[in-house]
């Protein structure tokens, strides 16, 4: 499965949709304060159809706050939040879902004890029959869930098995398949690869690429620059609640991205102190001046 990744990715880059110049979701100078704590401020983010916007940042950088605003769990307190060019303010995740913004959470994607098909359709169940006897259309739901999962390359023997018995990667994929199935236009992925093994991460990245190919706008939140660089079209690095870097793929290389992510600027400043500690190899660390320099090295595998 994973060996298809490069070809999938290559195929996409050649025919990225040019229509829909208007962004699906846009944040302008947005921010969020919890009481007197300013968790996020001055953040710009643009999500276009068929593009992957990566949001990177260390723990506590404000990534979670950012997606909570977009997904409708919290409301922004500063700036503007536009969907299809119109300002919005969601009061519940349901409203965001109705606008086509679906979020796949890292830890709260599913209800573990419920069967796979019930999880797949949770909150958007298919029903049949007139009102007092309106009931779940179980056969159709099982069939649809199975088809959609097979489209995503997940083959399950039994739709009745509790979703908690699936592996972490499979669960993420079920959640992604669900979002795609329910007509999401914008897919927010909260660190989908954080708890996964190498191969599973590859599978999830492949689905991100597939979702993009279906014309979805994707917000991919991660603290792994390597994963981000495999699928990303735009990179935003958050640091202490504000944007440190916002650059298109053409403007930034993996090395520079990694440096920004790893707190390269701070690390360089620490280099001299570290140099005095025996056993710390400072040769490989960049100098402060190197960080801002454009990535000169040509990217491999990039058309």
């Amino acid at each position: 499965m994973t060996d298809k990744k490069t070809s999938v990715h290559g195929a996409v880059l050649e025919d990225t949709p040019s229509d829909g110049d208007r962004p699906l979701v846009e944040l302008r100078d947005a921010g969020k304060s919890y009481g007197n704590i300013r968790a996020l401020h001055g953040v710009d983010l643009t999500v276009r159809a068929g593009k992957v916007s990566c949001v990177l940042g260390d723990n506590g950088a404000g990534k979670s706050t950012l997606i909570k605003i977009v997904s409708g769990l919290h409301q922004h307190t500063e700036g503007e939040f536009l969907v299809d060019g119109g300002p919005v303010r969601f009061s519940s995740p349901r409203e965001a879902l109705d606008k086509g913004i679906a979020t796949v959470y890292q830890d709260l994607a599913v209800v573990p004890l419920m069967p796979v098909w019930r999880n797949f359709f949770l909150g958007s169940e298919l029903t049949k029959g007139p009102w007092p006897f309106r009931r779940l259309d179980i056969d159709r739901m099982k069939k649809t869930a199975d088809e959609e999962l097979r489209n995503m390359g997940i083959v399950l023997d039994d739709m009745e098995q509790p979703i908690g018995t699936l592996s972490g990667g499979q669960r993420q994929c079920v959640a992604i398949a669900r979002a795609v199935h329910f007509g999401a236009r914008v897919l927010i992925l909260d660190e989908p690869t954080a708890a996964l093994g190498v191969k599973q991460s590859g599978v999830v990245l492949k689905y991100i690429a597939m979702a993009r190919d279906r014309g979805l706008g994707v917000i991919f939140i991660t603290h792994n620059p390597h994963h981000a660089y495999m699928v990303g079209d735009h990179f935003s690095v958050l640091r202490l609640g504000t944007l440190e870097l916002s650059a298109d793929r053409s403007e930034v290389g993996l090395d520079e991205l990694t440096n920004h992510m790893a707190g390269g600027a701070e690390l360089a400043a620490l280099k001299h102190e570290l140099a005095q500690v025996r056993g710390v190899d400072t040769e490989e660390l960049p100098e402060e001046g190197d960080i801002r320099a454009p990535a000169a090295a040509p990217e491999e595998g990039k058309s």
Binding site: L73, S92, P93, R94, Y105, L108, V110, V111, L122, G123
Partner: peptide, 8 residues
């Protein structure tokens, strides 16, 4: 939390 997030 999951339930709320998927619109229940």
């Amino acid at each position: 939390e999951s339930a709320r997030a998927v619109g229940v």
